[in-house]
Design a protein around this nucleic acid. Structure first.
Lengths: 327, 327
DNA sequence: GCGCGTCATGTTTGCGTAAACATCGGCAGT
DNA sequence: ACTGCCGATGTTTACGCAAACATGACGCGC
């Protein structure tokens, strides 16, 4: 910076003013400085800046995996919106989904240069490590029921599930079977709860759930078991990938979709429209979730206000060709 | 830090020594300092640290999208390996895949606190912005043909495509049709080139390519056109998602897979094993790509050696049930 | 017993930046 | 002409840390 100042014939403070866009610099001076900067290939040192300003303009995102469509889409939206606000995002992957793994990530995070944190994971995994969450660091949580302790942003999974199950009942199915995600997943639990609630309301018997792990393969296994039951005519599957497996199992068992069995998925991943048949499913707006995360976090950072509570992003039932009235 | 020093009854330098793990501190003193740190909730300020040390221990990853399986998996592997080496990763999404967009990202990047950059995108988009790539900043590129200018890491797409096409020819197909990715994609070009080369070598006619955009929907459209041609018995599709669309198109046209038409995909995304039928495809080892990126970048950072050149990660043909000899 | 080396610890300094304050020149109002 | 004020720019300082150097205590060999 001193070199630039010398070349431009001004003080380093003026250089600083130019590079931060402060007002009160003569246009002619500004141009001179800009010119000197370019000539010397000067770029501000962000460490010094962060040190001086006491902020990093960086948001940390802590998650288990980018392998799920939901997570990667959410992160992408977070990154895009953060960039728009002049924030970079730092990814903190938790290698192992254990409390030790989370603890490690949070320890690293404590030393990391971030102004706030977005947590994309089940909060119960955080319970044991709360102490290490640097106090005073703004946090927003996704995919969790921690609305009483942190600000939470999430898709309205319960409502999506309700729409899915009601759609099947409205088509005239006696009841709806359900393939859940893994036990640890709060999303899975909420979807299952809503499924159960709708059946209860309608006075229909709730068959026992099949349990999967989100993978198509696990959906296939669940689907084979369901395909063997002639009374099963409608299935609500907790995500699209498992639904893909269910469709294959039904196909192999000779049960037609939607003529013999109706299937509804969850997520509306891009491929779902190309399944055989195109899948009726519940769309989640991950972009909006990401946007609200960033917005909520920046609000905390700038206004120093924290409001625990859950913000729900609406979900939409997308009707395609995998559902029909029973024959 | 001063507070910690006071509480522990030592100088701030000793606190620094403890927090950086430097040797030459009496065990008893160390414990005392650690204790004081905990009590005061002290955590080192990484901005100051970076300023003093002249390094950020952060790697920037610049890419267009996390929406493709390949990108998100690669990023995940990069993050994991970087974490293991004590590096954080910062995501720089390029909103618009134009040179302006890239330019913007690199400008931001220049002011960003990173010690090196991994670029996951077509390098030709960088051409116009080379000047803004901060000189002296280590770079590794993925998915590009810039091996003469930068260190490049990539899956061996040509070999994977060769294996796929040879497999189909070996099964006895007269020739192999091809559905490509979008024009701008270098991966797509390499796969198409290899496809053409194998057919040429074998003295087979190369049918005209169908062009897609990686999406299942575009695969479906290409598949419909191919399904209409009775002479088409073997299709090499440039990725799995488009293959899903091709499978649906063939199914709707009443052409059985693999009895009437064989299909090979590329990527081996987890769902591919659950397609109908399970898809024969080429597996890419994204985790290894990510690992090598980090390794190569750290080598540059630590040893100050740059070696342009391309490192290829082997790809493997995974034979499933979508390919068979023609009837 | 003296000098020297060794080890634990303390003191000084500067990394690059920007806020706070200081200065300086000119212009409006009287 | 003088005061006062404002706008443009310069000077000083501190952000938190860790290298480099300084100090001081202790032990060992002669």
């Amino acid at each position: 910076m001193a070199d630039v100042a010398r070349l431009a014939g001004v003080s380093s403070q003026t250089v600083s003013r130019v590079s931060t866009g402060h007002p009160g610099v003569l246009e002619s001076t500004r141009r001179e400085v800009l010119n000197a900067m370019q000539q010397l290939g000067y770029r501000p040192n962000s460490a010094a800046r962060a040190l001086k300003r006491g902020e990093f303009r960086t948001i940390g995102v802590i998650l288990f995996t980018l392998a799920t469509t939901g997570n990667s889409r959410t992160v992408e939206a977070i990154a895009a919106h953060a960039a728009r606000e002049g924030y970079a995002i730092t990814l903190i992957p938790v290698a192992v989904p254990t409390q030790d793994g989370v603890l490690g990530a949070f320890t690293r995070l404590g030393e990391l240069a971030v102004d706030g944190i977005i947590v994309i994971m089940e909060v119960h995994l955080l319970d044991a490590v709360d102490l290490t969450l640097p106090p005073g660091v703004p946090v927003v949580v996704v995919d969790s029921d921690a609305g009483d302790r942190y600000p939470v942003v999430d898709a309205d999974q319960a409502d999506g599930a309700r729409q899915a199950v009601r759609h099947l009942l409205d088509l005239g199915h006696e009841t709806v079977w359900h393939v859940t995600g893994p036990d640890e997943s709060f999303s899975s639990a909420r979807r299952a709860q809503a499924w159960q609630a709708v059946l209860d309301e309608a006075g229909r018997p709730a068959p026992e759930c099949e349990r999967g792990d989100w993978s198509a393969e696990s959906g296939y296994r669940a689907g084979r078991r369901l395909a063997a039951r002639p009374d099963c005519t409608a299935i609500f599957v907790a995500n699209d990938q498992m639904a893909l497996g269910v469709l294959r199992a039904l196909h192999e068992a000779g049960r037609r979709v939607p003529e013999d069995v109706s299937v509804v998925g969850f997520d509306d991943i891009p491929d779902a429209a190309s399944y055989m048949p195109p899948l009726t499913t519940v769309r989640q707006d991950w972009a909006e979730v990401g946007r609200l995360c960033v917005q909520g976090l920046l609000q905390q950072i700038n206004r120093h206000t924290v409001q625990p509570g859950t913000v729900l992003v609406p979900t939409t039932l997308i009707k395609r060709e995998s559902t029909a009235s029973p024959l």
